[in-house]
């Protein structure tokens, strides 16, 4: 395997990783601050993609489409929080899982009802189309580089928000003692709605960004959702930093595993068998990673000590 191919695959892993991060950040934030397991986070991803596809179709502007994905997902998040989610905070996790699973079904069928059963079209904008040459003769799609950039910018922005702003102080304070933060005059329900909408907006953004190179269809959020859960478990539930590290880890492991494992098995068995065994094992790799991390650090890489 050539060096160029390897570097390209590492870039692919990073790109996958940062998108997982944008998705997982909201999930881990909501879990950390509100203690809520939200299975419907993937639906917000889907809403972002559908909103972007609709607006891009109407206006032809990709940037407006991204703005729409943020706005639509944030609005959907805020509404769901006020109408449904806030009744779940005091409940146990099983109730939360059941209720948010019901939300997935409602969102999916609602989207199908609005948009029909056929996938929607959303494309990379013209100004990011095609590959660019990187040093060393690597050809890499401009859009994927842009995704890496956006993902890192989101990570930086989130860090600044959490570490440097009053909202961030409240979020962190609410994480450890919600009763006390209320006794200091912070409107906890507003804070929760805001945090939920923020997480939703990020999921929506991820959906729109990814939708341009994948398929905008009902149910697109669920597979990503599962990976996002793996990420927050590895990173430590509630930790944004953990989510970032774990996302990149999962992204790179999954990508390189899928490429290298079949090659590795080809050394010891027939090529077509190596292919089957290698790719089967590659698909399990991140779960194996998760298991190993949990054995070594039961509360995840950056999880609060249980």
């Amino acid at each position: 395997m050539s060096m160029i191919l390897l570097i390209e695959q590492v870039l692919n892993g990073l790109q996958f990783g940062v998108m997982l991060f944008v998705m997982a950040a909201g999930l881990t934030l909501v879990f950390g601050v509100m203690g809520l397991i939200n299975l419907a986070h993937g639906s917000l991803y889907m809403i972002g993609a559908f909103a972007a596809a609709t607006v891009a179709g109407m206006t032809g502007s990709f940037l407006l489409a991204l703005a729409a994905s943020l706005a639509a997902a944030a609005a959907a998040g805020a509404i769901v929080e006020v109408v449904v989610i806030r009744r779940l905070y005091a409940r146990d996790h099983l109730d939360q899982v059941l209720a948010t699973f019901a939300l997935i079904l409602i969102f999916s069928e609602g989207t199908r009802w609005l948009f029909g059963s056929f996938p929607l079209f959303l494309d990379v904008p013209d100004w990011l189309r095609g590959p660019v040459s990187l040093p060393g003769g690597i050809l890499y799609p401009a859009y994927r580089l842009a995704i890496i950039g956006v993902g890192l910018a989101v990570a930086l922005g989130l860090w600044a928000l959490i570490a440097r702003t009053r909202l961030g102080i409240r979020i962190r304070a609410g994480e450890s003692d919600r009763e006390m933060i209320a006794a200091l005059g912070v409107d906890i329900s507003k804070l929760y709605t805001l945090v939920f909408a923020l997480g939703a907006a990020l999921a929506g953004l991820a959906g729109a960004l990814v939708g341009a190179i994948q398929s905008v269809q009902v149910g697109m959020g669920e597979p990503v959702m599962i990976l996002a859960f793996v990420v927050i478990v590895i990173g430590g539930i509630g930790s944004i930093k953990g989510a970032l590290v774990a996302s990149l880890l999962v992204g790179v492991t999954d990508t390189l595993g899928g490429v290298l494992l079949p090659v590795a098995f080809a050394q010891i068995m027939q090529p077509s068998n190596a292919m089957l065994v290698g790719s089967a094992l590659a698909s399990m790799l991140i779960y194996i990673l998760m298991a190993v991390v949990l054995v070594v650090r039961p509360s995840g890489l950056y999880g609060a000590r249980a």
Binding site: M1, E8, V259, S279
Partner: peptide
Amino acid sequence: YTQLGQTDYAAEIAQIRA
């Protein structure tokens, strides 16, 4: 062989390119 339900093919496309 890709994964069933896989949505990102960057790695495969890189292999095709190479």
